[in-house]
Each structure stands twice: as C-alpha cells, then as structure tokens.
Design a binder for these strands. Structure first.
Lengths: 252, 252
DNA sequence: CGTAGGTTTGACCGCCTTCAAACTTGGTGG
DNA sequence: CCACCAAGTTTGAAGGCGGTCAAACCTACG
C-alpha cells in the first residue's frame, strides 16, 4: 500500500491509539486496492478474509433473503467495515458492494486477531468500534419500528443537514433508489414522500434538497439523539468527504 | 451477592475466560438484587451505572419515541445486557423492565472498565459479546426489512422450536401483546396471523403452539441462519430456563 | 362470583406496495 | 451538436398488508 495512505488510517478511531509497532506490522501486511463501481466485495454467508477500510469512494452494505434485497447501510471514507465478522469468525450477515470506484485497504483477519491479542489499546478501540456499530443498528431498528416512512425521510434529511453543519441545502449522497431501500421503502414511495414534504418546509430539485422551514420539518421527524445519533456536527466546512452521488441497486 | 451465584456468572462467555483475580475482584464489588415484576430497571437516555447480569426471571428491552413504544428484545438468564452503553459511556438507547420477579447481578461500570483494561482475556470476551450483540441487531433489522409480519411470526415459531431441540410444541415465553411488539406488529395483527398459520402446519391453543407440519411452516418462514441466527440447538432437554409466560407492555 | 386485563373478532381505513406507463437524465455515437 | 438509448425517477390507479377503534370474549385472580 502507498505510504501516503497510512496517516489516514492512523487517524481512525480504530487505529489511533494502538501501539506504533502493532500498527506498522499491520501496515506491512495490509494492501490497498482500487475497485471499480458496482463490484461485489463481500457476499453474505461467506467468511471474513480481510478487515476492510474504505479510503475513497463509497460502499453499500446490503442483505438479501428469498429473492428480496435491502440496503442496510452505506459506508463512506474513512472508516472500517465488517469488524464484527472478523472478530467473531462467523459468516457475513451482509454483502458489500462498491457504489463508485473505491480505494480500499485490506488487512488479513488473522493478523488483525494477532494484533488484538497483543495490543490491548487496539483491543479497547475495537471494542469501542463494535459498541458503536451495535448502537447504530439499535438505532436503525428503532427507526424502523417507531417511525413511518415519511418520518424516516424527514429525519434523514435533517440528519444529513446536521452532518453538514446545519446546511440548508444538501445533496443526496446516493441514488434515490438506494436511499429508498436504505430507509425501508420503495422508490415510488420515496418519490411521493419527497413530494409530500414539499409544503412542509422542504424543496426538492433532483438530488438537491433544501430545507426552507426547519421547524416544520422537525415537527414531522421529531429528531431524537437516541434514534438519530448524537448531535456531532461536522465543522461547517465538511471534512474531505465526497457528498456527491454515484450509482447502485435496490430493495424488496 | 450470594456465593452460589458466582459459578453461574463464571460460566458465562463474558466471564468464562477472564483471569481469576479479575473475576474475584469484580465479584467482591458486585451485588445481587431481586426485583419485582414490572420494574423499570433502566430508562433510555440515562447513563450506565452498572453492567447487568440476569440470573433468574426475564427482562424486556424496549424503546420509545414520540409517545410510541416498542419491544426491542427479551433477555433470559443467564446473560448480560447493556454492555455497549457501559463500554461507550453514552446514554442508553433502550429501556429495560422486568417481566417477572428477577434476580439480577449489578457490577459498577467503573470496575468493569478497570477490569477490561487490566485483563485482556476479559477484553477479548467483551469484544466477542459485543460483536454478537451487533450481529443480533443486524439480523433483527434484516428480519424487519425483508420479511412481512406473517413470515416473521412463522420464523419466530420455528426458531423457538429449534431452541427447544426441535420440539413440536412450544409455549410462548411472553405475553402475546409483547410478542407482537417484539415482532413489529399489533396484538390484533398477531392474533390474525396466528389464525392464518393454522391450516399451514400450526395449531394454536392459548400460549401453546404446536407445529403439525414443519415443511409447510418453513415454506412461509424460509428460515435462514443469516437472519434467524446460527442453528445451535439446545440439548433436547432445555437448560434451566423458564419458558413460561409472565407480564409486560406494548408497541406503537 | 365479579372484576380487570389480555385476547380475539369485526369493520373500517390508511400507509405502502405493485404494476404500468410517462417522463427525465445522462451517456454514446452518428 | 443532436438523436437516441438505457437507466432512473415520477405519476397514476388499484389493491393488500397491517393499523385503529370498538365490542365481545376469555382467563386469572381476588
């Protein structure tokens, strides 16, 4: 892997506090690879070979069953995914696919496990990462069970805005088809919900969504840190992360 | 806490492999307490004081938002809950309430954190526990997004049967009201779904559910280890765990 | 035996999906 | 540069899954 990628990894919560020798040994074995868009990186049911770290691009986690398919989450740089399957040594519960050309660092799970045993700071960080992932999915389950689709969409828009430093205008980071599946609805329903939100504090033009009346939107979404995640606003200017669209698939 | 409770704790995956001194020091500080039915042990939004270990009884994890409420999970002995909030030092995402009189061991989070730092075997076990919890919620989200309510119920019945060593007859472990909320539906809908399953390989009489035609039921549920959990059958005779009903609340 | 709480049943309604067609949009090649 | 095609999105109509409300029915318990 390229040397200029290492500092980015080193800054990650997962790697930030680990000992330098452990980090360096992992980096020696790790390799970075570029994948084209629409490539299936991981298939659910298979076993973990590598811990994945996305450096550039975007990856969609999805799951399928009985011919249906749904988007479970979308991963943006810089972050890791499928840590749980690495730790647990059980099959992946989700598949992963690139949405656009993506740069990904692969670290063999065997080496990750050795590092976890050797470096307790790394183990603690991994634990925190897993706890965070756990909480994210608890939130997702709450979101699905407690809100209807209009409320989920409203909350999503507010959340995206919040992540961009309360920007009035956001650009959807993925195709609407994927967003719909992510939010647990059909593309048709998303389209209608978008229209329904117009006249409730939102203007939509293509991928661009503008909040004209935050209070009215919030009245529908009823944001809650216990469901939408802690209110950690990005600096008003976003960190280097592409908030631009791409390509992808759908839900059942 | 009573000495005769310690071996039960020691057998838990979370505590099994930790060093004896660490375990003993935790046990000295921990205390065991009996709680009446219907007691709110934990309220979402609060911060973690104690790691909870349920020794006897049953506890329901639920979440509420905007006046609605839903059951997120049900915890049976012997297992721990709210590890994630302990590790992360962020507010609980779920509330917890006893369904029946329950014996619970409380371990102060501060001591748990110290033990995690000191004992890397314990840290590894906690990591595995968290990874397991993470995967459980991924499965729950898949279940909610990919199956409809009839399919969820069918899968639930098969799963319970499987956990009882493929027993033909199971007794619902909680009130139907709670089960309904757990499965993401209303009591009325659960009632109708139960009736719908009769004539598809199931006979229902009160809390007793009998599978008369496993194949037909499976045709509806389409069981999948990636969604319903690994096929770890309990020994044909269940471990000491009460599979009997109790009391509780509901969903929105 | 009576009451309270849980469950079932029925009627109705609304959210959301399905299917189908029209309409954009973006990319490609004449 | 424009025409065309493929893919995504929007719109409409119809229907089903599941929710709501209300009443009747059970069941447990005092």
């Amino acid at each position: 892997m390229r040397d200029d990628e290492k500092p980015n990894l080193r800054r990650l919560p997962l790697f930030r506090e680990m000992m330098t020798p452990t980090f360096d040994s992992l980096m020696q074995i790790a390799y970075s690879q570029s994948f084209p868009a629409q490539l299936e990186l991981i298939r659910q049911g298979e076993y973990a070979d590598f811990l994945h770290v996305i450096i550039e691009g975007s990856v969609e986690l999805h799951a399928s069953w009985n011919g249906r398919d749904t988007v479970m989450g979308i991963v943006h740089p810089v972050s890791t995914f499928i840590l749980a399957a690495c730790v647990y040594d059980e099959p992946y519960l989700m598949s992963a696919r690139t949405l656009e050309r993506s740069q990904i660092v692969l670290i063999p799970v065997a080496d990750v496990r050795v590092a976890l045993r050797r470096d307790s700071d790394f183990a603690m960080a991994a634990m925190r990462e897993l706890a965070g992932g756990y909480r994210a999915f608890v939130r997702q389950a709450k979101n699905l069970k407690l809100r209807n689709s209009l409320e989920r969409l409203a909350a999503y828009i507010l959340h995206q805005s919040c992540r961009s430093g309360d920007a009035a205008t956001i650009v959807l980071p993925v195709e609407k088809r994927h967003l719909a599946s992510h939010l647990g609805m059909t593309p048709e329903n998303l389209s209608r919900s978008m229209k329904a939100l117009q006249g409730h504090g939102v203007v939509v033009q293509g991928m661009r969504v503008t909040i004209t009346d935050r209070a009215r939107l919030a009245a529908i979404a009823v944001p809650d840190p216990l469901m939408d995640g802690p209110v950690i606003k990005a600096p008003t200017v976003l960190p280097r992360r592409r908030e631009m669209p791409s390509l992808a698939r759908k839900r059942g």
